[in-house]
Amino acid sequence: MLDDIFLFLNSVSQNKNWKNDFENFYKILTNYNLKINLTRIDDYTDFYIKHVYNSALCLKEINISNLNIFDIGTGAGFPGLVWKILIPSINLTLIESVNKKCIFLEKVIKELNLKNAKVINDRSEILSFKFNEKSDIVTARAVSNLTMLLEITSRFSKINSHLLFFKGAKYETELLESSKIIKELNLKLDNVIKDELIEDSNYVVLDFIKLKSTPKKYPRSFNKIKNITI
């Protein structure tokens, strides 16, 4: 399976040293994971399949070269750092509310010498007003349910830009539950990118397009987003 994963990564990468960068990323991640809980997935094979490949899944269909990318609630850097390693030309902003994770992200950026990549330690719903319509692509992986996620992230996106969200087997249910907020936020589901490589995979990337500017009242405070059903 790893051979197939490596072939896929090589096919989407614009960085001839991607394998070496991921090997170093893995070493930093596993060492740091002994100090703080960054991820439950730290096995070498699982790192490539469940973190790297999964993060790169949409790169066959979406061209991110030279774009301004915001990765919301990035955690240990997925998918943002994977995209940056594979496509070095992107301008990457990693947003993470947990300071210890931000320190780790800064360490990876420094040790891998990643240019045009920065980390911001703050809540996304607050930062979205500061970075209103600054993102060519906004993305998030393993961050909350879709209804909350759409509200928190949509303001970052430029009009006609992509919002790419990584989801699992229950994505259809989440789409149904989010139908009202999708319309309210002036978004449209453009594509569902499925995993064609790993048999019986439940991973998909939901590809939304922002049709018009986000209404002024969104996003609300996190407590309202969390506690009020839209």
Rank of each mutant, 00 (worst) to 15 (best):
D122Q: 13
K118N: 13
I126K: 15
K118E: 13
L94E: 06
K134T: 15
I137N: 04
L81T: 02
L127N: 09
F104K: 05
K134D: 14
K130Y: 05
I95N: 04
F104I: 04
D136Y: 08
A142C: 09
I95G: 08
V82W: 00
V119G: 04
K84S: 02
I137P: 07
I126L: 14
V119T: 13
L114W: 06
V98K: 14
D136V: 03
N99M: 12
I87N: 10
P88I: 10
E133G: 03
L127H: 03
T139D: 01
E111Y: 12
E133H: 03
E106T: 11
I87R: 06
E96Y: 04
L86E: 10
L112D: 11
I87A: 10
M148F: 04
S135L: 05
L92R: 05
E111F: 11
N116L: 08
S154H: 02
T93K: 13
K101N: 03
R123M: 08
D122P: 00
I85G: 01
F104P: 02
S124W: 00
E96K: 08
L94M: 12
A142L: 08
V82C: 11
K110M: 05
S144F: 11
S144Q: 10
I87V: 14
L150A: 02
L112T: 07
R123D: 10
I95S: 01
N113F: 00
V143H: 10
K115P: 00
T153A: 15
F104N: 03
L81E: 09
L146C: 04
V138D: 03
L86G: 07
N99A: 14
W83E: 13
